[in-house]
């Protein structure tokens, strides 16, 4: 299983993708928010979204799975 993980602890501010969607390398998939700062998390390679593991408002730690990849 491949996935995109969180790069910091914070709240999921926005989920920008849905299952089945194909995403290119560098596209933002989730925007995290922490300490008054929004940080986009982008795809490191192109692929298709299998599952979104978080919903907006969720709290995540650094390293938590955000999006599962195919």
């Amino acid at each position: 299983m491949k996935g995109i993980t969180s790069n910091m602890a914070g709240t999921v501010f926005k989920v920008l993708v849905q299952p089945g969607q194909s995403v290119a390398e560098g596209d933002d998939v989730v925007i995290l928010e922490s300490m008054k700062m929004e940080v986009p998390v982008s795809a490191e390679e192109s692929g298709t979204v299998k599952r979104v593991a978080v919903t907006e408002g969720d709290f995540v730690n650094e390293g938590d799975l955000l999006v599962e990849w195919e």
Partner: peptide
């Protein structure tokens, strides 16, 4: 409280 290289927040 932030990563000195990436300058991302580091709560904890």
């Amino acid at each position: 409280a932030e990563d000195p290289v990436r300058m991302l927040p580091s709560p904890g």
